[in-house]
Each structure stands twice: as C-alpha cells, then as structure tokens.
Nucleic acid binder design. Structure first.
Lengths: 341, 341
DNA sequence: TTGTAAGCGTTATCAA
DNA sequence: TTGATAACGCTTACAA
C-alpha cells in the first residue's frame, strides 16, 4: 500500500531547491520569493506532503501540543472541559493530548511522564491530589502547567483555575436550609480533593449560620470513579437515617441518588430535595432537571488555556507564575428541590 | 526554574558509558550486563531522566501513539468510547491523542492531518461522513485506521467496527409497535451517517412487518451537535402532529425529548413512550431511566483497538485489511416506555 | 558486553 | 533571496 511518505527532501529534489528553502516556503516565510513559495506550495500539495511535526519539534524545541490530564473523561463534566479546552486550543493552533488518570496516583504519574516524553509545551491537569508528589515532580521539570478544578491552597507555586467551591457548597446548603430542610445529607467527594474540602467548608458555614448542628453521620464520601452512591443511599434509608435534603458533590452522584430514592419508592422533590454540582443540565437537557451549582466550564477552560499559553510564552523569556483564578459559582434551581415550608 | 532536561548524553557522560549503552540499558535490553543496567537505571532516575519519545520515534518510525478522532467528546457516548479505548491502549503501552471534529468536514481533515503530522501509528475515527474524501485521503497515506460507529458500506477498503444499527432500529420500533404504538416519531441523525441510515432501515422494516404505513412527517433529523430537538418537539406538539411513541437516534436526544414533553405538560411514559439509543444509563444512573438500545461500547472500543493494533503490526509485514465487525445490539427496557394496550 | 557511525526529518544559523 | 551545514535526542546496524 501507500508509497513512502513525502518529505521535504522529496520536494526539494523535484524543484531543485534545497530542503531549507522548501521548509521556509511551506512555512510561508517572507524571505522566500512569493513566486517560489507558491510554486513549492503547489507541488507540495500535489505530492501529498504532510508535515512531520515530530521532526520539527525535535529541532525547534516546541511541539504546539498541550496535554490535558483528567480523572475520568467519561464524566460529562470533564468531557465538556476537554471539549472547551480543545476548542480554545485549536484557535491558537495547538493540539491537545488527553490522558486519563482514574484519579490514581500511579496513573497520574505515568500520564505526566507520557506527556513530557511527547515534548508537550504545557499541561492542564486536574490533579488526583492523592499526594503533592506528582505535581512537585511536574514543577521541577520546568514545563508550564495549570491546575484545573482543584488546587493546593498552601502551595503558591502551583497556579490554578478553580470555581468558587466554598461558595457553591454554601449556596447549595443555604438553599436547602432556606426551603425548610434541617437534616441535609452531604454526599461529598474524597476530602483530599480541594474542591471536596472547600465545598465542605461551605456546607459547614451555612449550617452554622442557621444554627443547625453538624451531624457527621450525614457527611459521606461515596467515591468519584467507582461510585457507591446507590448502595450508600439504600443502606442509609434501610438504617432509617433521618434526612430530607441531599447535597451531592456532582450531578452524576445527584442523579444516582435520585435514581435510588425513586427505586425505593420515594419522590424527588416530594420526599427529598436533591442538589447537584456542575450544572450539566445546562448542556444536556435531561428529564427531571436537577437543581445544581453552576460553575462555568467554558470560562474555566478558556482561562486555564489562556494562562497556560501565557506561561509557555513567558517561560521562554524568564519568570512566570502567580496565576490564581477563582471563577464564580451560582445556584440554578430546577425541579429536584422544593420548598417544604 | 528547571535546569535543562536530562538526556541520554548527560547520563552517558556521568557514567562513562556511551549514549548507545545507556539507551539500551534503560530499555532493559538483555545484551547489557545486568549490573550495568542497574547502575545506569539508578543514575537515570536520580538525575530525573525523562525519555524523549519524540526523538525516539523520529528514528524508530513508530510513536506508540494512536489518534482517536470523534465528533463530540462531550457526548457521554463518545466520552465512554474514548475512555475505553484509552484504557485498552494503555495495556499495550500506547498513548492516545483525542481530536474533535464537531462532525465538520474541514475540522475532520485537519484532525487527520494533525494526527499524521504527529506520526501516530494508527487512527480510530468516527467519520463525519459528510463525504468520503477525508477517509480516502487517510487510506492513501497508508497509515492503519479503523472506523468506529459508522461505516461506508459500499467501500470494502475501510475497515470498521459498528454496532448492529439496523437491528437496533428494528428492535426499538418493534417494541413500540408491540406495546400498542402506531404513530412513531423517529428523531434520527442526519442520513449521510451510516448509523442513521441503518437505524432508519430497521425502523422501516418493523413498520412494514406490522403493516403500519410510513409517514414521512414522522421522520425528522434534529441534528447531532447543535440539537434542535427541543424546538422540534415543541413545534410538532403545537402543530398537533399525531404520535404516541418516539424513537430517538441517541439517548441525549431522547432526554431532550422527554424534557420538552414534560415541560409541555405531558407525561412519559404516561402520554408518550420514548426509546433512546446508546444505553448510557448503564453507566450513568440517572433518574427517569430511559428505555434504550444497548450497544456495548467497551466491546466496540476494545475490538476497534485490537483490530487497529493488528493492522499496525501487519502493515509492517505486508497486507492487512478486511476487518468488518458488527457488535450486537439489544433492547433494554426501562421506565420511559409503557404498554398502552 | 560495549562502542562507533549514521541517520530519522526538520529548523536554526550563518554564509553567499 | 537562497544555500550549506550543523544540530535536536534518540535508535539501528554493525563492528570490536
């Protein structure tokens, strides 16, 4: 099949220019005569030339590629983020590599190594936060990166773009309290994740403001990748744990909660009010629309990319860093909650 | 920040071995003394060596990378497929690059070019099918590829893995007919996509079997990327178009349909029965579970990858091709349909 | 078991 | 405006 791939050399031989001239003509450089450029470009097209950017990047030192490293690409939240980053990157003629970590530390490390070994110009990563090690490692390499969605609050070296998780947690809890719920089950993500920890802060703050005591029994962590939400809800109900409101770490967990509550014969919002996080219904119009906390994924994605590109350019010059961005969150009320006053 | 990146040369200098020996030691080749290997590997780790696979692939001719090109990564269907391909690829120590086409022909072409320019060893692509050109172009390059989810039935050169779309369309329609629906709205994808066309065949076949005349008014194409499902449903209802069953091209469209029907005051499945396609509820347990056609995404993904790897290996040898795989579909009944007899 | 030499396809640099 | 040469970091082939 397929003859060997056409290279600059082939074009050079056919045109009697040098490889160098051909290279610059194809890059449309001004210092090559317009006519020469046209001629070479035409022939290149005719011969089916495809740039070998691998070879180019070996020489030039940059690849016009960035890596996007997330926990679970099949979670619509990350799906949307990846799509938005890709779209924004394309405008700047960057390509993205997507790597999945399943929020596992070893896979995260190997994802970072893979990205680096492919000479990416920068990395946008939603860190597993099982430890700081992988990110310190990344930091030491000097390759520009930006955290997205999670941060290390105490480490100023790690630039990030997150949403206002504490406010989100606060707004969700406050809304449930305002609508008459006192026993609010919080199905949180694992606490080593900053977003989980900060949403928890918001949860506690709201409870405190309303003088509702914190019941540790109502704070649970069903897991993000392999969710045990359904089992958890079932056993909570069977054990007769008392709650009427649910605040879930993300919409997927909220959906599962509603799914199981309905399966057990309860109505949402009739018997339980449920709030999610991520506002996926803004993109996917599903039945039984979910009350949720909206974090602008397109804004987060675009900001993360902008910052990354800035860091990439600055790092050629000299210093960089100090980017800390918190995108606003707000409550979007839909049909999974109701006023029980 | 960051000192310059460590290369084989640096390690060679520190150990007084040659670059070549270091290279082979790090690849753990048997022809290097075990002791030497250990010593070099230890030092490499100590010095923070990260392989430059770009340089390696330039020389070796393969990159251990495959490209996955899809229309919309934020659609959970593709999110799941990408995740499954990534997982399977990782086992074979392959990395994936993900590229979005938005089902647009120009973006598809540039996605293919980007993939090729990065020297991927192979491509798994869900073609936009706006024309055959891009795939013929890909074919001519000689780079191994496999279509996933869509096929060109009349072009035997293009290997594919799809699900049994016709059967899926047939099963969905038959089920609606069996449960008493005669007026079945088919919200299809655009007909230039093989899956849409073949599901339509199934739809027609079932109608025919049951002696129900085909009403063109009931066959619509709300669009896949920018879905106009909600507007469409609203206007159909307002125009008083008569139907009681809906078969949607995918679950996202089905969800939107139910969303809008409910918004207009109708019940699902009380007033309308709705069937989707993709069976996303097998992964995401959402409230109001959707009756859907199941196509095993993990099986499709794994088969596509297996075939691709086979083609990659065979293409080094000589011939390859002739892979045509149809994964079975089946009906999964949930709560969005009911027997109206 | 290790070393030497060449080369992958580009781009950078400097000379003409 | 174009050409000659070297170099990017690695792997291959072969020699020692």
């Amino acid at each position: 099949m397929a003859g060997k791939r056409v290279t600059l050399k082939d074009i050079a031989e056919r045109t009697n220019y040098t490889i160098n001239t051909v290279s610059r003509a194809l890059k449309d450089k001004e210092d090559i005569a317009l006519e020469t450029r046209k001629k070479i470009q035409r022939l290149a097209k005719e011969m089916g030339y495809i740039e070998n950017s691998v070879a180019g990047s070996l020489r030039s030192g940059y690849s016009k590629t960035i890596a996007v490293i997330v926990g679970d690409i099949s979670n619509p939240h990350f799906g949307i983020i990846v799509k938005e980053i890709e779209k924004a990157a394309r405008k700047h003629r960057y390509t993205i590599i997507v790597l999945n970590t399943e929020d596992r530390e070893e896979l995260e490390e190997s994802a970072i190594r893979t990205a680096l070994s492919k000479n990416v110009d920068g990395i946008i990563i939603c860190p597993s936060q099982r430890s700081e090690d992988n990110i310190w490692f990344l930091q030491r390499t000097g390759v520009p990166f930006v955290l997205i969605g999670r941060r290390f609050k105490s480490i100023p070296e790690f630039d990030y773009v997150i949403c206002d998780d504490e406010k989100g947690g606060y707004l969700a809890t406050k809304y449930l309290l305002d609508t008459g719920h006192k026993r609010i089950l919080f199905l949180n993500g694992p606490l080593h994740i900053s977003s989980a920890e900060e949403r928890y802060e918001g949860y506690k703050k709201a409870l405190q403001e309303y003088g509702v005591p914190l019941d540790p029994q109502l704070v649970r962590e069903p897991g993000l990748i392999q969710s045990e939400t359904r089992h958890l809800i079932r056993s909570l109900i069977e054990e007769g744990v008392d709650f009427t409101g649910v605040f879930a770490f993300n919409d997927v967990i909220a959906w599962e909660t509603i799914y199981m509550l309905q399966k057990l014969g309860y109505g949402v919002p009739k018997d339980y009010s449920v709030i999610g996080f991520d506002n996926i219904n803004a993109r996917i119009f599903s039945p039984s629309p979910l009350t949720s906390i909206s974090n602008s994924k397109s804004k987060m994605s675009r900001r993360a990319l902008d910052i990354l590109l800035k860091k990439i350019n600055e790092s050629q010059a000299g210093k960089s860093g100090g980017y800390r961005e918190v995108v606003d969150t707000r409550l979007v009320v839909r049909d999974s909650t109701r006023n029980s006053h």
